[in-house]
């Protein structure tokens, strides 16, 4: 508290010095009381004018959009008496457009796969499993934490779940986690050799895993209370039941959409 008072006092003193120096420069030295008052009034009125200018400018800036909007001429559709030929043209072109709409709807519908696919929302940490174009299961999952782990200047890892379209590339039962270097660095442990026994952990990935490529997996977790939160190193964690269901629903090559 006292420090901040001293700090403010110092600033105030510095500002006063600048002010009096300026006053002395403009009014001539020695500074007399009369000239000081005159200058004080001048500075005050100058600051007042600047303030008015700023306020006016802000008023203009914030009302300009409204002004622009109300001054745009709006087109009014007046009822038109169409000739017979024009009515015929309307009917004919409506049919053309309607046909085109149906064609586009069909094309868009054809893009949705009948085969099972998984959608993962990394913002809400939720998954949606579709089969025959119907949502058959949804639930909580955990995705990347967005932690950027820095080990000095050289080594950096970001734990985020990649977004986009992926395919199931591998399916494994009773997967074993081969801990990468960052797993040791994150725990403050020395990094062992590449095939050291401490790198292999059994049971931490649950009963099944589905590989998405580049080391990203859909797997189980021991930390079920953290499901629904962004806590992983980039993989997608599910609870045991959901993992089992997804494992048996999605085949190799099935699409996974992450957003």
């Amino acid at each position: 508290m006292s420090n901040s008072v001293i700090y403010i006092n110092n600033i105030w003193l510095k500002l006063s010095k600048i002010y009096f120096d300026l006053a002395a420069k403009i009014s001539g030295w020695p500074l007399r009381l009369g000239s000081y008052v005159k200058l004080h009034n001048r500075v005050f009125s100058f600051l007042k004018n600047i303030l008015i200018i700023i306020i006016l400018f802000l008023i203009v800036v914030f009302t300009i959009q409204w002004l622009q909007e109300i001054l745009i001429p709006v087109k009014h559709n007046r009822p038109v008496n169409y000739s017979l030929a024009e009515i015929e043209a309307i009917v004919k072109q409506k049919a053309v457009v309607e046909k085109s709409i149906q064609k586009s709807y069909k094309k868009l519908a054809a893009l949705i796969p009948w085969s099972p696919y998984l959608v993962v929302n990394t913002s809400k940490n939720e998954f949606y499993l579709y089969k025959n174009r119907k949502l058959i299961r949804q639930g909580k999952c955990s995705t990347g934490s967005y932690i950027l782990l820095e080990n000095g200047e050289q080594q950096k890892w970001i734990f985020k779940t990649p977004r986009g379209e992926f395919r199931i590339q591998a399916k494994t039962t009773s997967p074993v986690w081969k801990k990468p270097d960052w797993a040791f660095i994150e725990e403050g442990l020395p990094v062992p050799s590449l095939n050291h026994s401490s790198r292999f952990e059994y049971g931490v990935l649950g009963d099944y895993s589905l590989g998405l490529g580049q080391g990203y997996l859909i797997h189980g977790t021991l930390y079920k209370r953290l499901l629904g939160l962004p806590v992983t190193h980039g993989c997608i964690r599910l609870n045991d039941e959901d993992l089992r269901f997804i494992y048996y629903t999605l085949n190799i090559g099935a699409r996974v959409y992450i957003y």
């Binding site: 967005y146 932690i147 950027l148 820095e150 080990n151 000095g152 080594q155 994150e186 725990e187 403050g188």
Partner: peptide, 13 residues
Amino acid sequence: VIIKKAPKDTIEA
């Protein structure tokens, strides 16, 4: 992104 420095040991981790 949350920046996290690598801990020196298990206690710091």
